[in-house]
C-alpha cells in the first residue's frame, strides 16, 4: 500500500539518468520534466539514446545512475506501480507474431486483470477504434507495418494508462499511414493522456509535441517549445533553378535586392539557394524575375531538416564528443529559453 496523495502535476521527472552498455555511455545524464496532459517530443538521430531513455522510464532497464519518477512514483523502487500507470509502444511492434489481432488484445487484457467476457469486449472495441476489425482473425504475420503499429498502440491502451510512451511511432511507415498515426495520437491527447514520443523527424515533433528535447550522444542538447527550437535552427531555404544558366548573376542580384540576402550557387546543377526569412518577400522576387525575363525552371522550399537542427545545435552532424561539448557551450540562449 502506498500513500494516496502524490503530486501528479508532473507526469515524468527524470534527473541525471545514465545507462552504460560496456564502455558506451548510451544515456549520459538526461534530465526530463514532462507536465501532465502534454505531449513531449524527444528528438534525435539513431543511437542518440532515445530508446534507452524510454526503456529506463518504462522500467524495462535499470538506470546506472540518476533517478526518475512517474507521477511521483520512483521507477526503481515502485516499478510495479509505475507499470500500472504507463503504456509502452516500442519502435518494433511488441505484439505476439503467432497470435491474431483479437488474441493479442485478449491476451494483454487478461494479463491486465480483465475477467469473463471483458477481454473479448475490450479487444473488439479497440480493433474497431483502430480500424483493424477486418484483420481481427488474421495471424499477425499477414499484417502490414502500419497495421502492426496500430495494434501495438491499441495494446498499450487497454488499461487506459494516463502516460503513454511512443518510441518512434512512425519510423518506417509510408506517408499515408504516418498521417493516420498522427491523427490517432492527437485523439489520444485530446482524451487527456500524457504522451512522451521519440522521433527522428523534426516535422513530427513540430506537428505533435508541446515541448521538445533534442538529444544527442545520450545528452539533452536543447529543450524548449518547437517554436523556440525552430527559430534557433534558422529558416527555410528557397531553391531556384533557372532555364538559362547565363541568367544566374542577374538572378543573384535580384535576390539580394528583394530578399536582402546572399544566395549560394551549387556547382554542377547551377541551383540557387537563399535563406527565406519572410515568405512574403518571395512574391517580390518572382515578380522581379518575370519583369527581367529570367525564366525559372524549378522552384522549391527546403524546410530545415534534422541534420540542420543538429548542425545548428551541436555544430556537427555525427561528430566527436569534443565538438558536442563546444556546441553545448555555444547554445546557451536555447537552454535559457526554458
Amino acid at each position: 500500500m502506498v500513500s494516496t496523495t502524490r503530486p501528479t502535476e508532473l507526469a515524468i521527472e527524470a534527473r541525471g539518468l545514465v545507462k552504460l552498455f560496456g564502455s558506451n555511455r548510451a544515456v549520459d545524464g538526461v534530465d526530463l520534466t514532462v507536465r501532465t496532459g502534454t505531449v513531449y517530443g524527444v528528438l534525435g538521430p539513431n543511437g542518440a539514446g532515445k530508446t534507452t531513455t524510454i526503456s529506463m522510464l518504462a522500467t524495462l532497464l535499470k538506470p546506472d545512475a540518476g533517478s526518475a519518477k512517474i507521477f511521483g512514483f520512483d521507477v526503481g523502487t515502485e516499478s510495479q506501480i509505475v507499470r500500472q500507470l504507463i503504456g509502452v509502444t516500442g519502435q518494433y511492434a511488441s505484439v505476439d507474431e503467432n497470435l491474431s489481432g483479437t488474441e493479442n488484445l485478449v491476451l494483454f487484457s487478461k494479463l491486465l486483470g480483465l475477467r469473463g467476457s471483458a477481454p473479448k469486449r475490450k479487444a473488439a472495441e479497440l480493433l474497431e477504434e483502430f480500424g483493424l476489425t477486418e484483420a481481427a482473425r488474421k495471424p499477425l504475420k499477414s499484417f502490414s507495418g502500419g497495421m502492426r503499429r496500430r495494434l501495438d498502440l491499441a495494446a498499450s491502451l487497454i488499461a487506459q494508462p494516463p502516460l503513454i510512451f511512443l518510441d518512434e511511432p512512425t519510423t518506417g511507415l509510408d506517408p499515408r499511414t504516418r498521417g493516420q498515426m498522427w491523427d490517432t495520437i492527437r485523439r489520444l491527447v485530446a482524451g487527456g493522456s500524457t504522451v512522451l514520443l521519440t522521433t527522428q523527424y523534426l516535422d513530427e515533433a513540430d506537428q505533435l509535441a508541446d515541448r521538445v528535447a533534442v538529444i544527442d550522444k545520450g545528452r539533452v542538447v536543447a529543450e524548449g517549445t518547437s517554436g523556440e527550437l525552430k527559430s534557433s535552427v534558422g529558416t527555410a531555404a528557397l531553391q531556384l533553378r533557372l532555364s538559362e544558366s547565363s541568367d544566374i548573376p542577374s538572378a543573384r542580384e535580384l535576390i539580394r535586392s528583394t530578399l536582402g540576402v546572399d544566395s549560394v550557387v551549387s556547382e554542377g546543377t547551377g541551383q540557387l539557394t537563399a535563406p527565406m526569412q519572410h515568405a512574403d518577400l518571395v512574391t517580390d522576387l518572382l515578380l522581379a524575375l518575370r519583369r527581367d525575363n529570367i525564366a525559372v525552371a524549378e522552384i522549391s522550399v527546403q524546410q530545415p531538416t534534422l541534420d540542420e537542427v543538429f548542425l545548428t545545435l551541436t555544430g556537427h552532424g555525427t561528430g566527436t564528443p569534443a565538438e558536442t561539448e563546444k556546441a553545448r557551450r555555444a547554445t546557451p540562449e536555447l537552454e535559457n529559453a526554458r
Partner: peptide, 16 residues
C-alpha cells in the same frame, strides 16, 4: 471511449 485514459484520481488502489 476506448482510448480515453483513466484519470489519475485514486492512486491508493495501486499496489507495488
Amino acid at each position: 471511449t476506448a482510448i480515453t485514459p483513466a484519470l489519475l484520481q485514486d492512486t491508493g488502489a495501486l499496489r507495488n
